[in-house]
């Protein structure tokens, strides 16, 4: 899937650029894209290092397992293959909580810890995503944000009479997206079948 999308974007991009007589735009776009990717990764170093340290402390303090215990009925339904006491569960919960609170900076490191833990449970091919990983990412990409801080800030800058008016509509739209994510994930999980972990 990702192979076709990747190839599709590149091929259609070059064809369209050639048709417009501006192939050189492609060359520039390649360099800019690669540059942005490396800078993004390196910018992550600081925040990743810090939050991975905090995550380890949160695990050691018992905070993560307390949280995991609280939401156990939900996670048992969503992640039937992950043992309830496994560190993956704690990291998944920390990531989703950070997402809900709108703490994007903290959410990414916690999500990466969750992926590492889920990979430890992967008993199939280490290059193929497991069902739990797909469920986790479906939830993560559609995850409810209670306070969309960035866009509220932009609305304030441009003189909105009620910058938070969109909080309700945003929660409604996200809830619909999340419900769809869970349903589609459940269906595809059975449809694909293999790679059971």
């Amino acid at each position: 899937m990702v192979n076709y999308i990747w190839l599709g974007m590149i091929v259609s991009g070059i064809v369209v650029a050639a048709a417009h007589g501006q192939v050189e735009a492609v060359t520039r776009a390649v360099l800019e894209g690669a540059d942005k990717a490396v800078k993004t990764s390196l910018n992550l170093v600081a925040i990743l290092t810090f939050w991975l340290g905090m995550m380890r402390l949160a695990e050691a303090s018992g905070l993560v397992s307390a949280l995991a215990y609280l939401v156990r009925p939900v996670t048992r339904f969503l992640f039937p293959e992950v043992p309830p006491d496994h560190p993956a569960m704690g990291a998944i919960i920390m990531n989703l909580s950070a997402n809900i609170l709108g703490l994007g900076n903290a959410a990414t490191p916690m999500g990466l810890v969750a992926m590492q833990e889920l990979q430890k449970l992967n008993r199939g091919d280490p290059k193929t995503a497991t069902a739990s990983m797909c469920t986790f990412l479906a939830l993560n990409t559609s995850c409810l944000t209670l306070i969309p801080t960035t866009i509220i800030g932009i609305r304030t800058i441009y003189g909105s009479a009620d910058p938070t008016a969109i909080v309700g509509t945003t929660i409604f739209a996200t809830a619909c997206g999340m419900t769809m994510a869970v349903i589609v994930d459940r269906l595809l999980r059975h449809f694909y079948g293999r790679g059971v972990t």
Binding site: V2, L112, M115, T128, M133, L137, S142, V184, L188
Partner: peptide, 17 residues
């Protein structure tokens, strides 16, 4: 997320996303 653990076959993750 997939890159951080070296996964290249995403299966149905893109579809559900």
């Amino acid at each position: 997320y997939f890159g951080s653990v070296g996964i290249t076959r995403y299966r149905y993750a893109i579809v559900s996303g």
